[in-house]
Amino acid sequence: MGSLNGPAPEPGSAPDVVRSWDARADLYLRLFRHEWDSKPFDQAVLAEFAGRVGAGGRVCDAGCGPCGQVTAMLAGHGLDVLGIDLSPRCVELARREKPGCRFEVRDQQDVGRAAAPGVLLDGLVSYYSLHDRPKSELPATLAAWSAAIRPGGQLLIVAKEGTGDGVVDDPLGTELRVYWAEFTEWELHSAAEDAAFRVDDITVREAYADEIRTRRIYLSATRLPDSGTA
């Protein structure tokens, strides 16, 4: 359905992500501002990622959302972190919540500028950032991340397990219709390998009592050397 400002954006497109997240960023912040306090497993996953990258490493938090917790936690582990999100409202709120961290409005397929000009990233974290776009975009997204990360750099993807790929009622309980994509271990593993990553580990955990009843997939990978290099 269109609006007075023109037709509705294509479901799962960049404008659609902006539409949905600008509308519910404040609600998400109220609901999940302190969620990491009760997630020791996820805290440990981020600590391990930071250890693999090493102190001072240049890292992008793709899809930082309005809370900015992942960006802040990685910065707390000594990394040089930039949080990015397509939603201007998410970035506005993240800057307010975590004033000591850096955040920018940017598409997660445009991470090449997350470090200094001409400098590749040492790592990238995607915490539930893949769910707002169609599965068909997964190869392009992984390719963009691969191009932005140096050989030997680290990748962490956390995604909800499943086979869904389309428009659904908002899982947050608003009246919005939003795009929702889920992934299998095989889909993430295959896409990462196709994008020149070596998959080092895949772990699956059950949902916590206060989470959407969907298992979580944690994929850790290392950027392989480019062809023709040592």
Rank of each mutant, 00 (worst) to 15 (best):
S3Q: 14
P11L: 09
G12W: 04
S13L: 03
W21P: 01
D22W: 08
R24V: 04
D26H: 12
Y28C: 03
R30Q: 08
L31C: 10
E35I: 13
D42E: 15
F49N: 01
R52E: 05
V53D: 00
V53N: 00
A55M: 15
A55W: 13
C67G: 11
H77L: 09
G78P: 07
I84R: 01
S87K: 02
S87T: 06
P88A: 04
E92C: 04
A94Y: 01
R96L: 08
G100M: 06
F103S: 01
Q108P: 07
G112S: 11
V119S: 02
L120H: 06
L121R: 03
V125W: 05
S126N: 13
Y127L: 10
L130T: 05
S136V: 12
S136F: 08
E137N: 15
E137D: 15
L142C: 10
A148M: 11
I149T: 14
R150Y: 06
G153L: 07
V158W: 00
G162M: 11
V167L: 05
D170I: 04
G173W: 02
R177Y: 02
R177W: 02
V178M: 13
Y179R: 02
E182L: 11
L188I: 09
H189Y: 10
D194L: 04
D194A: 09
A195C: 04
R198L: 10
I212C: 10
R215C: 12
T222P: 02
